[in-house]
Amino acid sequence: MKKTLILWVLALMVTIPASAQVLNNIDEIAPFSEGLAAVRKGKQWGFINEEGKMVIEYRDDIFASAKVDETKTDVSGVKYPIFSEGLCIIKSTVEDGVPVFGFMDTSGKIVIEPQFLNVFPFKDGFTTAVLFDKSFKGENEFKLKIFEYKFFDVRVSSTGEITDYFEKRDHVQMTVKRYQMPEIGAKIIHKNLVATHKAGQGWTIENLETKK
């Protein structure tokens, strides 16, 4: 009888997957995209795979918009964290709490450091964004550090390379009280075709392949 009980217990252990995992206390579950679904606990997001296994642990930098504008396709329209071409938007802050955005891959590794004030999801290996660039210029007579701020509409590859600079952006206020997220003035409309917008001049379409 004892031998039979031991064999029964061993058989039961074999039938239970060693990787079985139960996730509790989840506050929100997003739809699957590219085989992964975002799950939220409190203010943190993580990702599960199609077997229900946690593959990216809960963390603070995975981005979802607090006030979703579903008419937009930039970051303001991101209701849930999703992967697009293996990349998901993450967020950090600069200056007086102004948000900047980058991307992580499906392993949770940051592949594009947060540096954009606004960005579209990737398509065919590229996206367009508003680049925030801050460079140290020196110190004044009071030993206060002086920085130069530059903002550009850019095209970015999925490896993080900025392949093209378009318009320089002016009048971006980098304090939370005065900050408004800038619209992206460049958008990819088909492969190497990019439309750029100038105030008062409408849209201009460029073929980047013939431009080089």
Rank of each mutant, 00 (worst) to 15 (best):
F83K: 05
S158D: 11
E139Q: 08
A11R: 02
W45Y: 15
F101P: 00
M13C: 14
P17S: 04
A66K: 14
I82D: 13
K123A: 14
S76I: 03
L117F: 07
T175A: 07
F132T: 12
M104E: 13
K137E: 15
T204A: 11
N118H: 09
I29C: 00
T196D: 02
G102P: 08
K2P: 01
D61K: 07
S84I: 09
L23G: 04
K53V: 11
N207S: 08
G46W: 05
G200I: 10
K187Q: 10
L131P: 08
F136S: 05
L144W: 10
K67F: 08
E95W: 06
I56D: 01
F63Y: 15
E161V: 13
E139V: 13
A64T: 14
I188L: 09
Q115S: 12
I82M: 14
S33E: 13
E206S: 13
K67L: 04
E70G: 03
F166Y: 13
K43I: 13
S158A: 15
T204P: 02
D60T: 02
M181V: 12
I26P: 06
L7P: 00
L117S: 06
G160C: 09
I82G: 06
V75S: 00
K212G: 07
H197I: 14
N118W: 09
K72M: 12
E161S: 12
E183R: 11
L12K: 01
L10F: 05
K79R: 13
C88K: 04
G200M: 09
I146A: 03
P17I: 01
I110G: 03
K150Q: 13
K198H: 12
V9H: 01
G46E: 04
V100W: 00
S157H: 04
F32L: 08
E167G: 08
P17W: 00
K191I: 00
A66D: 14
H171T: 03
D170E: 11
E28I: 00
F103C: 02
M104W: 01
L193Q: 12
G102A: 07
E95H: 07
G77M: 00
G77N: 01
M13E: 07
C88P: 02
V55W: 02
G102Y: 03
A18P: 01
S65D: 04
V154M: 11
G138K: 02
V68L: 01
A199Q: 15
P81A: 10
I16E: 09
Q44F: 05
A195F: 03
I189P: 03
A195E: 06
V55D: 02
K143L: 15
E141W: 09
F151A: 04
V98G: 05
L144A: 13
G202E: 12
L208C: 10
V119G: 07
F47A: 03
I89T: 14
G202L: 13
N140I: 06
D69P: 02
M174V: 08
I26G: 06
S76V: 08
Q180M: 07
N192S: 14
C88R: 06
G202N: 14
